[in-house]
């Protein structure tokens, strides 16, 4: 674990957080990709020791503060998804970006399902088709995100 990669991780996560909470008009807001999730997943795949479950948990906690009805909701969902990704990171890393995007799509769908279940448990379930836009935009942004986040890391991404 070197401090350089930790710094990169925190910096990219902060930028992604700003992009996530930036106020946008409703139509753009609907299409906004889940930047923070994609960033956390990228570091879980490419640097599972620096990134991984702890980062997933804390990023989820921050998301809870910004947009969660209860504290711990996004944290649990993101811990689960990062756990799956960290477990399989070697297999995922060896795949081309398009296939990685499909895996990210599946991971983000799992994430939304966990959120939906917790929303149901807390009695605030809102069944809206807009929920399922986020996994799609997240998967679409994965290839460019890999190119940007991996830029200058001195290795094949």
């Amino acid at each position: 674990m070197n401090s350089d990669s930790v710094g990169r991780l925190l910096l990219t996560a902060l930028v992604a957080l700003v992009l996530t909470v930036l106020p946008l008009p409703p139509i753009l807001d609907l299409l906004r990709p889940p930047f923070l999730l994609v960033t956390v997943l990228f570091w879980s795949v490419n640097s599972p020791r620096t990134g991984g479950i702890a980062i997933g948990f804390f990023a989820g906690l921050v998301l809870d503060v910004f947009q969660g009805p209860v504290l711990g909701e996004h944290a649990l969902a993101l811990s689960l998804v990062t756990y799956i990704i960290v477990r399989e990171h070697q297999r995922i890393r060896s795949k081309p970006a398009i296939q990685q995007a499909m895996i990210v799509l599946a991971a983000l769908i799992v994430y939304e399902i966990v959120l939906l279940m917790i929303d149901g448990w807390t009695g605030q379930a809102v069944a809206s088709a807009q929920r399922w836009v986020h996994p799609l935009t997240g998967a679409l942004i994965w290839p460019p995100a890999v190119a940007i986040l991996g830029y200058g890391a001195g290795r094949r991404v």
Binding site: A54, G56, F57, V70, G72, A75, L76, L80, Y83, T122
Partner: peptide, 13 residues
């Protein structure tokens, strides 16, 4: 680690 953070999340919720 996942178990630890999952339990933490559930307790927090």
């Amino acid at each position: 680690r996942f178990t630890f953070f999952a339990i933490l999340s559930v307790v927090a919720m």
